[in-house]
Amino acid sequence: MNRPSVKMFLLCTVIIMVVILPMLIRDPYYLDIMIMVAFNSILALTWRTIMRIGQLSFGHAAFIGIGAYTSALIVMKLGVSFWLALPISGIVSAVISLLIGFTTLRLKGMFFAITTWAFNEIMRSAYLIFKNPFGGATGLYGIPAPYHIYFYGLPLFSFDNKQAYCYLAFLLLSATVLVLLRIENSRMGMLFDAIRVDDNLAESIGISLMRYKCVAFAIACFFAGIAGSFYAHYISFISPYSFELTLSVDAIVFSMVGGLASIMGPLIGAGVLTILSNLLHATGFFKMIIFSIFLVLVVLFLPDGIISVPQRTKMLLARISKKGMD
């Protein structure tokens, strides 16, 4: 089989699994894991998009948080429908990311990491201090579920069970993957690569650094905001502690463990680590310990992440067979 057909086969398998699994799995516990896999995948994918332009962000949770608070507030206070609030929260997140990006994207490496981390803390403190409208330390609770969807002649699609959320989560994930994949394979993706690999050279051949960095940052934060909106309405409760540094670090760990070289990396990383931490019933500090151990192991032994395993084994086998010949 040549490569495209392998890809198509994998894609079809995944689609079928995602469509059928929620019907078979009726246990809310496993459905919850699946939903979190989708949410974490978006988190990791969008973080990688920022990494693609060579910017290490430690404040990705802030944009998830902005999406979540925006959506929760406009639905609860203004009575806007969730289906309208979902894109709006993405747009608000993207606009704020542009404001942040204009000032901070010219910073490189550690300096960008520190400013984004600081932004994360600023947002968290803002939610804590301004009790109106953010609700302070208790956060916002009782965030309503999305409205039912009626199809004429088809059964009601209602959000009183987790299956519906599961479908919605994977729908959002597929939209994110589709858009990011198109960008990856277009000229735009090439420009991002050029900027990451050598920004001086990129600039000297006419690539506007700030312009394309801002574009990548805004696209990433748009989808992060949408994921945040989904999160708020799924969990129905958000607080400043939902969007702490640990969530930003999660995004980094998922992507690094999976591998940064392709879009599959963050997907695999988020999938493996989310399922693993749930199977081990790991939460809070225990989860952080497991994630950190994974990160250390991957950095030491698999610097290109899980997606480099097939290539690595191939190289290893080649080396073994060579030794056998000698």
Binding site: D198, E203, S208
Partner: peptide
């Protein structure tokens, strides 16, 4: 620099820069 390149001036580097 990117505007200069757009105007039609492109330079190479003393230490080779490549992707």
């Amino acid at each position: 620099p990117d505007k200069i390149a757009k105007k039609g001036i492109v330079r190479t580097f003393q230490l080779t820069r490549l992707f």
